[in-house]
Design a protein around this nucleic acid. Sequence first.
DNA 1: TATAGGGGTTCCATCTACTGGAAGGTCAAG
DNA 2: CTTGACCTTCCAGTAGATGGAACCCCTATA
Lengths: 130, 130
Amino acid sequence: MNIGEVAARSGLPAKTIRYYEDIKLIRPARDANGYRAFSEADLHKLTFLSRARALGFTIEDCRALLALWEDSSRASADVKQIAGEHLDEIDRKIADLKSMRDTLAGLVRDCAGDGRPDCPILTGLSKPRG
Amino acid sequence: MNIGEVAARSGLPAKTIRYYEDIKLIRPARDANGYRAFSEADLHKLTFLSRARALGFTIEDCRALLALWEDSSRASADVKQIAGEHLDEIDRKIADLKSMRDTLAGLVRDCAGDGRPDCPILTGLSKPRG
DNA sequence: TATAGGGGTTCCATCTACTGGAAGGTCAAG
DNA sequence: CTTGACCTTCCAGTAGATGGAACCCCTATA
């Protein structure tokens, strides 16, 4: 498979796939003409990466997960630990965003949003530790 | 005020304050010795920036908000629009993260997390469009 | 056979929002 | 006079791509 096909089938842009090769997440073979020659296994890995990145795993998480994925003697506990840590991180992010949201929603709610200059949003943003 | 003091009072690292000058969010005066000389107004802006950034506004949002903040004839509607758009964006991010969370939590829940290699997390991540 | 197009390749620059570190100038205290 | 805490500038690097230039390759068609 050429890069265009794996791009279409994995859902990743060709640029991103080249980048993933660059940082050694994948190591596709090469045809005589210099084109990358992707195997089914490469495609499988790219699909994995596409999914894992969409779920917010960092590249380094992905590298670790890929290594486990390729290691048939892995312990599922190792995988579960990485995923569990990431889950906690997502939970923290959600909590942060919710707190932001509530603060901001309060400011927006109190703003008249008319032609006058008085604006609780600006006032609120200029107060420390709100 | 020197940079150390505004850093302490605004809650922003000195490095970040220099960066903000670099990208022209602030324009502090200079003492004869070359040190930055911050006014109360500068400190006020930095506090504003610190808050706004903590609420997830981008630097360009901040630039626009600062401009409105300095414009005494602004319409609060203009501010409300920027804040409202940002609020929508936060809501989208929260929704995205929640959906990630649920997917990932499902995978983690189904994983035995023991010494055996069978792992629904890895299996689940290798399926497209889950 | 020339050419047009739609692939592919490399490399370099850019983005966001900082952060780290080196090399050096300034200032107040002991 | 030296020490140490400040301050300065500049250069490089982070994550995770993305955009673009310049160029090569392959196939189809006139």
